[in-house]
Design a binder for these strands. Structure first.
Length: 641
DNA sequence: GATCACTTGTTCCCG
DNA sequence: ACAAGTGATC
């Protein structure tokens, strides 16, 4: 199939695919076919004979990368097999390893699992303003300290930033590890300071999807790699929802001024949504003030108006049951479960809906806790496996030493670490000496006790004859929390039978790259952030209450800041409602259901971060989201559920 | 008397 | 889930 098959010359899609300007920006609203246009552009390049290895498609998620690959294979474009879509993270890791950029900094590429961050935070947060502040600061560190679109990446902004960076890196060096998010600042520094590095000339064509979600450091990496490359960026400032990683809608807006002479093409026809949803989306997003070029989506008449409902329940319990019953009913009447998408901004709302659906025997998948490593027990056993493979895995040891303590035994561990740093002994060796009484450090009793437990367990594993027995002991068959991890471990055993280290490497990479199912057959429940890039014939957004969607900014913040936060919440809701897909020829008009409730237990409200307007007898009283009113006249009147 | 583990009040999430 | 407050322990 040729890249231009079925495209009308002069149509925006054709223009995007064929544009020969070395700088091209595509602004594409939700459902306007940007992935389709990108795919055609890549196909054209491959047909022209551009080497697949010199094309870099950057996507926001691994799923999107695999989608692109699959679609190109489906088009049967020559060379598509070698074409690899990449997330910036995976690119960063690959470059840091292959170009020895990491080795030059004396760092070790042992990434920290999410759960392994806990002891790190416990170890450094006391001296740096508490856990919450430190977490925020680490986010800024991962953005190379460029918090604003106007910031230059690579420079700390305050003495506190500098102090945190010193202590963080010192911890990471001592533990011979790195943060996953650290790949971005490290790659930024590398390409910034080594303009002659191979990576800066490796690609002749760079395509970036979801550009509005790149922070300044990520934008900088693209720019530094594209001196001699043709660049095409695609995105939508109205869908910028990642301010918590310091991305800003101004990034994609200013790209045009920073790249003089660039071509600019807009995709405005919403091919996905029912026309009323398009009208509602346009009305909603027009309430945002920070929009230098107000745009609107064009509805596609043949999609039909769609079916839209807004329902308010008395209590959160009724809302959860109401949504579950609605879904059960739809499925009973022939809607495939995979056609239903439930969005809820907090798991306190999403998880009960999930549980209710499971009880009703509707096939459902929750995306709140998707990892094999979400359960505490799975984390413990995985850490033990790491330590079984290497006693010198300092992160795994640190994690296990802190177990069953609410501050991860930070004080005692600090003494141990100080001892290690002054003598050069590794933590494992020092602990062996402490345990045998060869040396003594005050206040380390409970740490040593914990160490002895770890040793006992490892000795038991060592007594087992083979790796398969170790897997059986560590990840027994009868435990639901361990099921997914066990499945991956068994899968790994088939590939690597003997060597421990190879086994762990293989297992770790399987965990990092979960298989993405091509066919969705379950009802999906997730947050609005996760729904980006998805679409579904039935979309339900639950928990549309003031305080949750939008979440209300802290009153102590400056007005401009509060305004910006509300506008991002509005963009989030805009992303949510535009997930609805109309396929009239298949009898799927596209259905959007927005629900809210009047009351929920105060404890749940607090857990979800809602500051209720009023509370009485343990109940929080809630109002429907302000966004309902902003949906304009195309939205139906809310009804009681 | 410094530092520990554990209990008691408040509660900024989202990939 | 976190930060601050409490008797208990080194």
């Amino acid at each position: 199939m040729a890249w231009s098959d079925g495209l009308n010359q002069g149509s925006p899609t054709y223009e995007i695919a064929s544009c020969e300007n070395a700088r091209l920006r595509v602004v594409a609203g939700p459902g306007t076919g940007k992935s389709y246009a990108m795919k055609r552009r890549v196909a054209r390049l491959l047909e022209l004979g551009v080497e697949a290895s010199s094309i870099l498609p950057v996507t926001f998620t691994r799923v999107a990368a695999e989608d692109l690959h699959r679609e190109l294979v489906g088009m049967n474009v020559q060379g598509c097999d070698e074409l690899e879509g990449r997330t910036l993270h995976s690119l960063a890791f690959k470059v840091l390893m292959s170009e020895h950029a990491l080795a030059a900094t004396g760092r070790v590429a042992r990434p920290l699992n999410e759960f392994e961050l806990e002891p790190l935070l416990a170890d450094i947060s006391d001296a740096h303003g508490g856990k919450r502040i430190v977490k925020k600061r680490i986010k800024a560190f991962e953005a190379a300290w460029a918090r604003l679109q106007s910031d230059e990446p690579g420079y700390v902004q305050s003495a506190q930033d500098a102090a945190l960076e010193r202590e963080l890196i010192s911890w990471l060096i001592f533990h011979e590890s790195m943060l996953i998010g650290e790949a971005i600042p490290l790659l930024y520094q590398y390409v910034r300071n080594n303009p002659a590095a191979p990576i800066c000339a490796e690609f002749s064509h760079i395509l970036v999807d979801e550009y509005q979600d790149l922070n300044k450091a990520e934008q900088g990496i693209i720019q530094l790699m594209s001196e001699n490359a043709e660049v095409c960026i695609v995105g939508d400032d109205d869908q910028s929802i990642y301010s918590f990683k310091h991305a800003h809608p101004d990034g994609i807006r200013q790209w045009l001024t920073a790249n003089a002479g660039a071509a600019d093409i807009e995709l405005a026809e919403c091919r996905r949504c029912p026309t009323r949803v398009v009208d509602m989306g346009n009305a909603l997003i027009s309430h945002n003030q920070d929009r230098p070029v107000p745009r609107a989506l064009n509805p596609r008449a043949q999609n039909g108006p769609g079916e839209i409902e807004i329902i308010q329940y008395n209590t959160i319990i009724n809302e959860i049951n109401g949504v579950a019953a609605l879904i059960e009913n739809l499925v009973a009447n022939g809607t495939p479960p995979g056609d239903i998408l439930v969005l809820a901004q907090r798991s306190v709302i999403g998880t009960p809906i999930y549980e209710s659906l499971v009880q009703r025997e509707v096939p459902t998948r929750s995306y709140y806790a998707e990892s094999e490593l979400s359960a505490a027990d799975a984390q413990r056993r995985f850490a033990l496996l790491k330590l079984f493979v290497s006693r010198e895995d300092r992160v795994a040891l640190r994690w296990l030493l802190g177990l069953n303590s609410n501050n991860w035994r930070a004080g005692a561990y600090r003494r141990l670490r100080a001892h290690c740093e002054s003598t050069g002994a590794s933590p494992w060796i020092a602990l062996e000496q402490l345990s045998s009484g060869a040396i003594a450090i005050p206040y380390c009793g409970s740490l040593i006790q914990q160490f002895n437990l770890i040793c006992e367990y490892l000795a038991r594993l060592e007594a087992l004859p083979g790796l398969a027995d170790v897997v059986n002991e560590l990840l027994p068959d009868n435990n639901a929390d361990l099921r997914d991890l066990r499945a991956l471990a068994l899968q790994t055993l088939d590939i690597v039978a003997g060597d421990r280290e190879e086994f762990l490497v293989e297992l770790t990479s399987l965990i990092a790259k979960p298989e993405v199912p091509t066919e969705v057959s379950d009802v999906r429940i997730m947050s609005l952030h996760k729904s980006k890039g998805l679409s579904s014939p039935v979309t339900i957004i639950a928990g549309c209450v003031q305080g949750l969607l939008p979440r209300l900014p802290d009153a102590s913040l400056p007005l401009a800041e509060r305004q910006a936060q509300i506008e991002e919440q509005r963009r989030l809701f805009y992303v949510g409602i535009t997930r609805v897909k109309s396929v009239p020829e298949d009898g799927k008009p596209g259905r959007l259901v927005l629900t809210s409730s009047r009351q929920m237990p105060v404890a749940d409200a607090m857990k979800a971060g809602i500051q209720p307007a009023q509370t009485y007898m343990g109940n929080a009283y809630l109002n429907a989201s302000q966004f309902f009113r902003e949906l304009g006249p195309s939205a139906p009147a809310p009804r009681q559920g």
